[in-house]
């Protein structure tokens, strides 16, 4: 279940059906791995439209939902919640590598 913190700016996200990868809906209705290419809704009404668009494009993804984001001065998007930060950028610790036999 998505836990969105309140915020005006939203992007639409989902997990890709074929491999579960985190994807975002871009301005062309395509799903992309890159948050920086996500279509950005700047107010509540546009966010509703964005979610409706995401649901209409949901054949190749699972359960689209809105993610609240912030935009830094130079236009870099970052999710507000820790959960979504982790979804967007991966584990917060170093996982062991396949051939590793000892942790550093």
């Amino acid at each position: 279940m998505a836990k969105n913190l309140s915020g005006d700016m939203q992007v639409a996200s989902a997990n890709r059906l074929s491999d579960g990868a985190v994807v975002f809906l871009d301005d062309f209705g395509q799903w992309t791995r890159r948050l920086d290419r996500a279509a950005l809704a700047r107010d509540k009404r546009t966010a509703e439209i964005l979610l409706a668009r995401a649901r209409a494009e949901a054949a190749s993804v699972v359960d689209p939902f809105l993610v609240a984001v912030t935009e830094s001065g130079d236009g870099v998007l970052e999710p507000l919640s820790l959960r979504e930060k982790i979804r967007a950028s991966g584990l917060t610790f170093a996982a062991i590598a396949a051939e590793a036999v000892r942790y550093a």
């Binding site: 610790f93 996982a95 062991i96 590598a97 396949a98 051939e99 590793a100 036999v101 942790y103």
Partner: peptide, 10 residues
């Protein structure tokens, strides 16, 4: 280490 994790080599 993350508890309970093992690599393929391990």
């Amino acid at each position: 280490a993350p508890p309970g994790d093992a690599s393929s080599a391990q």
